[in-house]
Design a protein around this nucleic acid. Structure first.
Lengths: 214, 214
DNA sequence: AGAAAGCAAACGAACGTTAGGTTGTTTTTT
DNA sequence: AAAAAACAACCTAACGTTCGTTTGCTTTCT
C-alpha cells in the first residue's frame, strides 16, 4: 500500500520518545513512557492503569507511589509536549535572520520537527488536552497559545513589511499549524522520509502559502 | 481572546449536524446525534452509553433496541462521515473543468467544506477510526484511502501536465489534507468566518503550495 | 395477536484508587 | 561494625463506582 495513506492505527510511530530533559529515572520514567504509548495509541479514556502497569512490569496500585493520579500522568506528558514545542519555536525564531521569510521557514521547521521527533508525545499533547481537568489544562493552554501567537506574529510581521501577500492572514496560522500537527500521526522512522526533508518541504509549502516564491 | 487560538474544548462547534441522507427518524436518529456529540467532545472511550442515553431522554438499556452495540453506533457515524466526504470530493472533481488548478481548488474546497459543514462528524470520523474494531474499520479505511488517492491523483496530474511545481509531491497530499482536517476542530458558525470563504482561502493556499500563483 | 420501544433490574467485568502489609535499601544510632 | 529505625517501592486485597450489555416485563400501536 502506498505510504501516506491512512491506516487503522491512530499513529504510525511505535517508539515512546521523550525530550532528554523530560526523561526520568527508574519506574517513574517507565510509567511515563508506557502511559505515553497507550494514551497516544488508544486515547486517554481507553488506556487503563492496569494496562499501563502491565507494560511497566508492576501492578496498577504501585503507580500511585509515583503519581498522585492518572490525570497527573497525562498532565505531565502534555506539559512536556507543549513546553518542548514552544522552546523549539522560540529557539528557532531567536536563531533566524530577521527577514520574515527566513523566520517563517525556521519556525515552521521547528514546528514540524517537534512533531516528527516526538510523534507520540505530540499526538497526546495535541489530541488529549481536552481530557485534562481544567486546573491542569489552564497553564498548558497558555503555553500552547504562546506557540500559536508566535506563528501569528511572524506571519503578521511579514505582511506588515510587505514580504508576504496572504489572502486571509487570520487563516494562515491555523492552516500552517494544522499541517504540522498531522505529521505526528503519519510520520515514523521507517517511512523512508528524512524529518529534515519533511520540515524543509513543509517550510517551503508555508512560504508559498503566504505568497513567497520558492 | 483572539480567535483561532486553542481552547480547552476538543472542538468549537456545538451542533450535532449530519448530512440529510444520514438523518434518521425517531429515537434512533436522536441516539446518533447525541452519540456524535459525546464521541466528538470527549472521545469514544470517555463517552458512556448511560450519558448518551441521558441526553436522548431514554435509559442506556433502551439504546439496544436500536443498535446492536456501542461499536455499531460509532461505526455508523464514522461510515457516514467518510462516505459524505468522498461523495463531495468526487462530485467536486466531476463538476470541475479539467485543468489541474480548477480541479485542485474544487477538491480542496469540498474537503474543507465537509469539515466546516459537519465539524462533529468530521472529528469523530477522523479521530476515532482507531477505536473501531477491525472488521468495522476495514471497509471504512478503504473509503478513506479513496478520498486520499483522489487528492493524490489530482496533484500528480497537475505535476505531470507541468501545471504544478511541487518540491515533494508525496508530501503535498498529507500537507493539504491536514489543513482541512483541523478545520473541524476550530470552525463554528459563530466564528465570524463564512465556510465558503475559508474553503476559498484554503483552496488558494493549496494552489500556492503546488506552485500556482494566485 | 404481534411488534416495537421503552422500562427496571441485574449481570459480569472493569475502572481508578486506597489500605495495609512486605521487602529491600538507606540512614541513624549505638 | 552492627543494630535499629526510617524510607521507598512494590505487593495483595479490596472498595465504591462505572462500564456495556442482557433479561424479562409493560405499554402503545398496528
Amino acid at each position: 500500500m502506498p505510504k501516506f495513506l491512512s491506516t487503522h492505527r491512530r499513529l504510525a510511530a511505535v517508539d515512546t520518545l521523550l525530550p532528554p530533559a523530560a526523561i526520568q529515572d527508574g519506574s517513574r520514567g517507565v510509567i511515563l513512557g508506557e502511559s505515553l504509548r497507550l494514551f497516544a495509541e488508544r486515547g486517554y479514556g481507553s488506556a487503563s492503569m492496569r494496562d499501563i502497569a502491565q507494560l511497566v512490569g508492576i501492578k496498577a496500585a504501585s503507580v500511585y507511589s509515583h503519581f498522585p493520579s492518572k490525570a497527573h500522568v497525562l498532565a505531565e506528558l502534555i506539559r512536556v509536549g507543549h513546553e518542548e514545542h514552544l522552546r523549539r519555536m522560540r529557539a528557532a525564531l531567536m536563531a533566524a535572520e530577521p527577514d520574515p521569510t527566513t523566520q517563517l521557514k525556521a519556525v515552521v521547521r521547528a514546528h514540524v520537527l517537534a512533531h516528527a521527533d516526538y510523534p507520540m508525545l505530540a499526538v497526546v499533547a495535541n489530541a488529549e488536552l481536552h481530557a485534562l481537568p481544567g486546573e491542569f489544562a489552564a497553564p498548558i493552554l497558555e503555553i500552547r497559545r504562546q506557540s500559536e501567537m508566535l506563528l501569528v506574529d511572524v506571519i503578521q510581521r511579514g505582511v506588515d513589511m510587505g514580504t508576504f501577500n496572504v489572502p486571509d492572514v487570520q487563516l494562515a496560522m491555523p492552516a500552517i499549524g494544522a499541517m504540522g500537527l498531522r505529521v505526528a500521526h503519519w510520520y515514523a522512522p521507517d517511512l523512508g522520509k528524512d524529518p529534515e526533508h519533511i520540515a524543509d518541504t513543509f517550510a517551503q509549502f508555508a512560504c508559498r502559502m503566504v505568497g513567497v516564491m520558492t
